[in-house]
Simulated scan of single mutants.
Amino acid sequence: MAGWAIAVHGGAGVDPNLPAERQEQAKQLLTRVLNLGIDALRSSGSAIDVVELVVRELESDPFFNSGRGSALTENGTVEMEASIMDGVGRRCGAVSGLTTVKNPVSLARLVMDKSPHSYLAFSGAEKFAKQMGVEMVDNDYFITQDNVEMLKLAKEADSIVFDYRIPTVGYETCGTGVESPFQMNGLPISIYAPETVGCVVVDSQGRCAAATSTGGLLNKRMGRIGDSPLIGAGTYACDICAVSCTGEGEAIIRGTLAREVGAVMEYKGLGLQDAVDFVIKERLDDGKAGLIAVSKTGEVSYGFNCVGMFRGCATQNGFMEVGIWD
């Protein structure tokens, strides 16, 4: 057994002009949650427990787009989604359309552990949350003034906007050139920079797990569901690897991105990093995204085809890295 490994992300697609202070805040948060996961793994925590623990912490901090600090819908409300998957037996749980559940990833875990289903959404998910006694808060808890102001700008521009730190003029930040605005499903949108959060872990027993959580797109239509809660798209874990994705949800869904990493390892015999590189290059078409992954043998990997990805990773042999850029 090669030992444990962990990776976290705070989203792919970063404005290259992101102020140094914000970059430092992001790195501090990633380092803090990474160390939280490392401590749990050193204490023999299981992969599934560690991914839930880390993503809960990310949901509770308003810096990234999940839980508190989630992007606002066209109605100025929050609709959150999350999923979790245990590579042992490929058990999974997912939730969408949450408006009052403080930690969506933990409700996803309860769907996996305490319900006969894999996926619950909207009023049904909220009802299940009440039955399970999870912590509930008013929708206002999730809303930040930054996102209120950005929604106003998005409505003025009649556009979906991914992130309040991204300027709405000039398209060079998403790598597509000023002449060709970025598109989603063929429709023009503003600068690409979603900030989903996620965590993947292989524990000292070789068990893999993954969890992903997000508020989705700013100014998204009510009822829009992205890749994060979709098993095989935004999240996947099996007996050989675990993957969490971030980026343009519609492209990740079309490419079944997370499952593809495991599939090319299984059927093409690729190693983890080669599998990640192949999937980023061959399965996104024109979409922009990134992902983090671990293998059962203790490897850790990441890849992205956009300007940057907020990420951190560590292994049992002492390797640790926190970064944003390529």
Rank of each mutant, 00 (worst) to 15 (best):
Gly11Tyr: 06
Ala12Cys: 09
Gly13Met: 07
Asp15Cys: 15
Asn17Pro: 03
Ala20Gly: 06
Gln25Met: 05
Thr31Asn: 13
Ser43Gly: 13
Ser44Ile: 10
Ser46His: 02
Ala47Trp: 01
Ala47Ile: 03
Arg56Val: 01
Ser70Phe: 13
Asn75Pro: 14
Gly76Pro: 08
Val78Pro: 15
Val78Cys: 15
Met80Trp: 08
Ser83Met: 02
Arg91Asp: 02
Cys92Asn: 04
Gly93Thr: 00
Gly93Ser: 02
Ser96Asp: 07
Leu98Asn: 04
Thr99Arg: 14
Thr100Trp: 08
Val101Asp: 00
Asp113Glu: 12
Asp113Ala: 13
Ser115Asp: 08
His117Trp: 15
Gly124Glu: 15
Val134Met: 03
Asp140Gln: 15
Thr144Ile: 09
Asn147Thr: 07
Val161Met: 06
Ile166Met: 10
Ile166Thr: 08
Thr168Met: 15
Val169Gln: 15
Gly170Lys: 05
Cys174Lys: 14
Pro188Ser: 12
Pro188His: 12
Thr196Met: 01
Val201Arg: 00
Thr212Ala: 04
Ser213Trp: 02
Leu217Ile: 13
Arg221Thr: 12
Pro229Phe: 13
Ala233Ser: 14
Tyr236Ser: 01
Cys241Met: 07
Val243Tyr: 06
Val243Gln: 07
Thr256Ile: 09
Thr256Cys: 14
Arg259Trp: 14
Met265Ile: 06
Asp274Arg: 05
Asp277Met: 10
Val279Arg: 06
Lys288Asn: 09
Ile292Met: 04
Gly298Phe: 11
Phe304Arg: 02
Gly308Lys: 02
Asn317Gly: 13
Phe319Ser: 13
Val322Leu: 10
